[in-house]
């Protein structure tokens, strides 16, 4: 005979949360463990330095003005290269997204050029544009341009046809349809591309600076490595990771403001 039983709850799990305190503690514990290992001599400071020494190195670099010298050179290249690559990428992406001829020829070129590892082109760009700023910025522009084009085209394709038909049915001008319907509709996809292109840009920046630059975080890290100055080398890497964090924070904020309708 069946007995009366309470219905058990079966839907627990598969719903992970992020607890801020645990995240923070993990980071702090990792750094503390590293410091402990270094000060106890478990690891060689010549190869891995220590958090304290890295901090000291950062302080010195800051006080001497060297930090800013390298960082400003890098930031400038990053900003110029990323902005040019992004703007041209969005413009080309819109053209490819909207016009059959542009799409047919443009997509063929983009598909052919996109898979090239951009770092491999740095020597070529140095031959074309010289060892100075030109080749570095062109490397960044090149690396940012293609993913931006691809994401913009995907974004344009994702704009519901019905919204464009609506615009046409109300007699909106073609430029208004592009500016007020197509572009905003493509924006979520374009922003998803920003996350990729900002990360790519930092990688290419460091690579280009390592190949031939006096200033810049990439150049600084390379010099420190040549001198076995692990403190400085890791200080440079800390700066780079902070740079990455800041950039993705800015992109996130921009996204929050511009896509708040979602």
């Amino acid at each position: 005979m069946l007995q009366d039983r309470r219905v058990p709850f079966r839907a627990s799990g598969y719903n992970p949360q992020t607890y801020g305190a645990i995240s923070l503690l993990t980071l702090i514990a990792t750094i503390a463990l590293w410091q402990l290992a270094a000060s106890q001599g478990w690891i060689s400071t010549q190869f891995a330095s220590s958090p304290e020494a890295i901090l000291q190195s950062l302080r010195n670099l800051y006080a001497s003005g060297e930090l800013w010298e390298h960082l400003s050179a890098s930031l400038q290249r990053l900003a110029i290269g990323w902005v040019i690559g992004t703007i041209t990428g969005i413009i080309f992406g819109l053209l490819l997204g909207l016009f059959s001829i542009a799409r047919s020829s443009g997509m063929a070129l983009v598909s052919a050029l996109f898979p090239i590892p951009k770092i491999a082109l740095v020597p070529l760009f140095i031959i074309w544009f010289g060892i100075g700023e030109g080749s570095k910025i062109v490397t960044l522009v090149f690396g940012v341009f293609f993913p931006t084009v691809i994401n913009t085209v995907a974004g344009v394709d994702a704009v519901p046809r019905g919204l464009i038909r609506m615009g046409q049915s109300f007699g909106l001008r073609p430029l208004s349809i592009v500016a007020k319907i197509v572009l905003p509709g493509a924006l979520p996809s374009i922003f998803a591309g920003f996350r990729i292109t900002t990360a790519t840009a930092i990688v290419l920046l460091v690579a280009a600076e390592m190949i031939g630059a006096e200033h810049g975080i990439g150049a600084f890290v390379l010099q420190a490595g040549n001198l076995y100055a692990t403190d400085d080398l890791l200080a440079g890497i800390v700066v780079l990771s902070l740079l990455g964090l800041c950039v993705s924070f800015v992109v996130g904020q921009l996204e929050r403001v511009l896509l708040r309708w979602r």
Binding site: G162, L163, R165, M166, S169, F170, G185
Partner: peptide, 18 residues
């Protein structure tokens, strides 16, 4: 009259970003 033939759409066709 700014648009003589004017539609009202089944799926509303509103811009979500406006």
């Amino acid at each position: 009259c700014l648009n003589p033939l004017t539609y009202v759409f089944q799926d509303f066709a509103l811009l979500p970003w406006r």
